[in-house]
Design a protein around this nucleic acid. Structure first.
Lengths: 340, 340
DNA sequence: CGAGTTAGCCAAAGCGCTTTGGAGCACTCT
DNA sequence: AGAGTGCTCCAAAGCGCTTTGGCTAACTCG
């Protein structure tokens, strides 16, 4: 059942039927009803390929997925996806994942824009002065960034959490508990979120005249193993920290293991706070000692990104504004006063 | 730069240029070279929307993503995706994720087939007599299943690992070590993989005249918390198992925690084996006691599924054959002889 | 040498939609 | 009455590709 057939059986032109269906005003209400009715009755669904060729709109949103033998997709991605999918579903939006060589994403961005494969894209894990961001901005495709970049002279739409604020809070709590030697086990410090977290920590310490020593900041991809290694290195030092803030629950698993291996205890010898993106399969309250966290649901972020993406496509969201979500500090058993 | 312009500047018809580019035989080699050359020089790329409308092929593969507020996407998904993307990238294949209401995936499958949005789809986490499988089979879209179903009277293409064999091996090892009371902490037992694993365990026990007691089989979604709960329930029983096989590393985390909480040790009081899909961020050798595993890279499976999907689309893979990969049993410190 | 192939090319008809540029008609206003 | 104004609707021209059904010229072969 295509437009031709439908219009023929209604004794109307394709133009009118198309317009009736798409809500254009140059068609009488009565005709519109007739058309809508017949369309529904016969289960007419416009052919997306045809519509696409005619309009250039695809009804899909895109994401360029960096891949490669040595590239791991962040497990956070599925949670984000859950949220994104949850919104997209109710709006019949599909998501196109375009795998790209991690060393050359530009080609892929250019391709999907040139091919008009998607109506909008989102970027994640941005870095300061991120090239991808500059690229999509000049390519002119609607986009939104999950996270933030820095150092651009133009505004761009993004959704981020207050990483600096979160780690400022966490740091302040630890300082208030009397800790003087703190450490930060961070994610990749070329990404903005990690920079912001470090900044937050430093600010909290500085407020009490403390410093985050060079050797007390680690920047690693967020695996259990890296958490373990970083913690061991820190704790076996001559001047070990009494409190650690950690950028992910997965790394925190490694930290906990290291603490155990060294015969230390949490929170007796070490206070620990970690950032929690809220995974259904690993919860901070279920750590051997319930873990204090800075918490923000990445899933909700996914849904919000989808929502704003849809708004940008339809022109409802015009200005390129940034949106920053506050982060909860949830205090549990893993923090205590500094050991004497 | 479109076909019209290109053909015009070559003083050829669109027909000939199109044929030259697509490798049809009714064009002379010399002309073909000229055309290819000019196309490359001017960076001509056929408009996919137009091609799509004309041919009905989209150059994309699809996956229906069950979503919903209470639906969690399996973290295994990203690893599978890494592999899939890795292959897809080198063939300029994109992946379309179509979010669907988890309670009604059928509508979405019908939509993507009717709309010819994708050339092929893959299904994952199949159940016995899985409705989706029957559906895509009748809808006639090329597909491949990651995992296996059961109880169909038609053949279908799939890629699965030998779950039964893996857990048979694991069970046999434990039995050989003298364990008599074994338990299985399994995934959702409505999914085939879980059924196969249980079957493998039972077979291993039966070979030595042993049985897997009703209370010694748990079937839960694979979270750390569920691993913990299941383990506590098992170990606090009047007749606790001395060995546990566990369907995922994440659950194994919970098992390890439970063992600790109860003041028991691995492998002294309990031997533990888990299935490892090979995550970069959580490795069995890094467990407090290195974990014995049945190992199979889900990432490689992703790449293979993509490869076969591409083959099915291009007609290279005709017959609907199943492919079953063997699973490695890797023995580490978490297993030992049964306590006396 | 004439009929039959064959290689190489082309014009034009789709694919199914949106959108442009009117056309017809009933009405209002001066 | 004539001009102007909305309101509905339509024919036809795209969108850019693939594919069908020739057509021509060169070549083969009895």
């Amino acid at each position: 059942m295509n437009l031709k057939q439908l219009s023929h059986m209604l004794s109307l032109s394709q133009t009118t039927v198309s317009r009736a269906l798409n809500g254009y005003p140059e068609v009488s209400e009565e005709t519109r009803r007739r058309v809508m009715d017949a369309a529904k009755r016969h289960g007419y669904r416009p052919n997306p390929s045809a519509r696409r060729l005619a309009t250039g709109k695809s009804g899909m949103i895109g994401y360029v997925l960096p891949t490669g033998a040595s590239v791991d997709i962040d497990p956070h991605f599925v949670e984000f996806l859950s949220g994104l999918g949850d919104y997209a579903r109710s709006h019949e939006l599909d998501l196109v994942l375009s795998p790209a060589d991690a060393d050359d994403e530009e080609t892929t961005y250019r391709r999907i824009v040139a091919n008009r494969q998607v109506d909008a894209v989102y970027l994640s894990a941005p870095r300061p002065a991120d090239k991808r961001l500059a690229l999509v901005n000049t390519l002119g495709i609607p986009f939104i960034v999950h996270g933030r970049s820095e150092g651009f002279d133009f505004d761009y739409p993004y959704l981020d959490i207050d990483n600096e604020g979160a780690f400022h809070e966490a740091g302040r709590l630890l300082v208030q508990l009397g800790h003087k030697r703190l450490a930060l086990i961070n994610g990749n410090d070329r990404e903005t979120f990690a920079i912001h977290r470090e900044r937050g920590m430093r600010r909290a310490l500085a407020a009490s005249g403390l410093m985050l020593g060079e050797r007390h900041v680690c920047s690693l991809t967020m695996t259990e193993e890296n958490g373990y290694r970083a913690a061991r290195r820190l704790l076996e030092d001559s001047d070990p920290p009494t409190a650690i803030a950690c950028s992910s629950l997965i790394m925190a698993l490694g930290v906990v293991r290291a603490v155990r291996d060294l015969g230390l205890t949490i929170p007796g010898d070490l206070s620990l706070v970690a950032h929690d993106d809220v995974f259904p399969w690993l919860r901070p309250e279920n750590f051997p000692v319930p873990l204090s966290t800075t918490r923000s649901s990445i899933r909700l972020a996914g849904a919000r990104v989808a929502e704003r993406l849809a708004a940008r496509i339809s022109g409802l969201e015009e200005v390129a504004r940034g949106e920053v979500w506050p982060v909860d500090l949830v205090v549990r058993g893993s923090v205590a006063g500094a050991p004497v």
